[in-house]
Design a protein around this nucleic acid. Structure first.
Lengths: 336, 336
DNA sequence: CTGAAAGCGCTTACAG
DNA sequence: CTGAAAGCGCTTACAG
């Protein structure tokens, strides 16, 4: 089924059919109807490849599946939202894998050289992410879910991120408002690392300081239930243990909950616990986990919106910081 | 950078360059060297779109991201392996979303009509999956990760699956060998449903019967930690409670572990617990979770291998059943 | 408003 | 072994 057959069926030329599809305003309404009917009855759909070759647009956005993305229960939900958002823009997502760091850059380069994709959406950003400056220097279009934290200068390219700092600070405010004076934190970042984890931690730290609350922090040695349980144990063994614990991820929070229960304490009563991500774990624990929901659909939509933005705007390195939404469940029954 | 420029640089015609790339045996070695050098120095990569148009192959495999895939912690790992396997075959994965059931078929149809993909890899199969017969009838190439369980006849198309029945039966054998006489099961399937869940359950049931062990089963009302904990509680409250519990997924197993600990019992000592999937949760709990690892890389490779198979072979509706591998950790310290 | 022409960058028989 | 020709199925200026 090609343009040619539709044209024959409707008794017009091929480019008139093409015009009906791509520039209907310049064809007579009556002709349009005739052509549309032919398209309808023949079930015609333009060949994507041919269109791509003519327009010099692949109609594909590249997305690299990180080896670590399985570590975050959240990335699955993000990928689904991103796929839907890309479809809404009439394109599709092309998945690929690449080695971490500098070595992975070659894969991005190949995809562009082959003109297999029009742009990239980046995720799983790290503190000094080599991809952002590299892509920006070459004028390759991309947007980034997540900031990088370069030591010098400003992050190149456009990004969308969730304000973990603000969300965790807000969590502290509300826990304090509910009567908690000792609010602990369980994170997983190694000291000195910059990234989403330390951003969340800093938000907690900042507000605790403002409110004059003590510094009760323990690091999980890994992003695991067990590591979180041990960190929680450290906190709870202190002479003045926290009555609430803010965890940097849902997984850590579930680990904390386990330790709380093991001690015969009641989550949401004796010790309040919060997570981050609103992943499937959050509704999976008894009475539910109070957590921070990322506005996934909006993140995806914004990422694509920025992709359409003028390149010179992109040069400015602008970003969008979206608020996370606190979802209250049994593990920390915060009021309004 | 096009073929034409490479040809000019090497002092040959365009099709000679093309031949060096696609049929090197028919070009003189000396010419080959000259052309390759030009390709090298110019950093030439063939335009994928143009090649696709000429060969009538999109070079893309379609994969539908199920709305439910987030429910399985495993699908993330699978998607990564599939992406890598597709790349190894010189193609890429194109992601899309579609409504469940019959309605989603239109999306598959559109992708084919537009010739945006060459074939599909299906996953998240359900008992009576409408996609398999529908695609097979239309002669559209696909392979399926996971069986369907049609009431009548045989599943159309080729599939790869992991033998959950055998793995769970083996689990029972080894638990029994370790001295357990009362082995429970916690699943999440609603009664009567056919699928991976019931396959695993049937394996457990089958071997328990063979060994003359009692039927100790409880269903989680959802695939959640909480549901699993309640199911485990039912089992453990019985007058003759199980000393080992086989769970249908890692998530359920973690829920069971939680309930075991809550009662002051020691997992891997008082009550042995096993999961399924070897997801990140399995290494995330204290002492680790004994579970069944799916041979993810091999599943992906087989799926692609079958895609290359002759269509008439595919008509036969053949499948590949791969064994799961029991990974022993602290929650059920099975010997060899 | 409509159609003839050129072109997107490749590949594939087919002469020479 | 190498090159001239046709074609993949569209879109995009550009005449008429």
């Amino acid at each position: 089924m090609t343009l040619r057959q539709v044209a024959a069926h409707a008794g017009v030329s091929r480019q008139t059919v093409s015009n009906v599809l791509n520039a209907p305003e310049r064809v007579d309404p009556a002709t349009q109807d005739r052509v549309r009917e032919a398209i309808e009855t023949l079930g015609y759909q333009p060949n994507r490849t041919a269109r791509s070759l003519a327009t010099r647009q692949a109609g594909l956005i590249g997305y690299c599946l990180s080896r670590h993305s399985g570590h975050s229960l959240y990335m699955d939900a993000f990928l689904h939202a991103l796929t839907a958002a890309v479809e809404a823009s009439g394109r599709h997502l092309l998945l690929f894998t690449a080695p971490d760091g500098e070595r992975g850059l070659a894969t991005y380069a190949d995809l562009i050289a082959q003109q297999a994709v029009d742009a990239f959406v980046l995720s799983d950003t790290v503190g000094e992410d080599p991809r952002h400056p590299w892509l920006a220097e070459r004028g390759i279009r991309f947007t980034s879910f997540g900031r990088t934290w370069p030591r010098h200068g400003r992050q190149p390219g456009m990004w969308v991120d969730v304000d973990g700092h603000a969300a965790c600070a807000e969590l502290v405010t509300r826990l304090h408002g509910a009567g908690h004076d000792r609010i602990g934190f369980v994170g997983w970042d190694s000291p000195g690392t910059r990234g989403a984890g330390s951003d969340r931690r800093d938000g907690w730290r900042f507000r605790c300081r403002e409110l004059g609350l003590p510094h009760l922090e323990a690091r999980a040695d890994s992003d695991s239930l067990e590591g979180a349980a041990r960190a929680a144990a450290t906190l709870l063994d202190a002479p003045e243990p926290p009555t609430a614990i803010v965890a940097a991820t849902d997984l850590l929070a579930v680990g904390v909950l386990g330790e709380v229960r093991r001690r015969g304490l009641s989550p949401g009563a004796d010790v309040w616990v919060t997570g981050f991500d609103d992943s499937l774990l959050a509704t999976s624990v008894e009475n539910g986990l109070t957590t921070v929901r990322q506005p996934t659909a909006e993140i995806a939509a914004r990422l694509l919106g920025l992709l359409e933005a003028e390149p010179d705007t992109a040069d400015a390195g602008a970003g969008v910081l979206l608020p996370g939404q606190i979802v209250v469940r049994g593990s920390a029954p915060l009021g309004l």
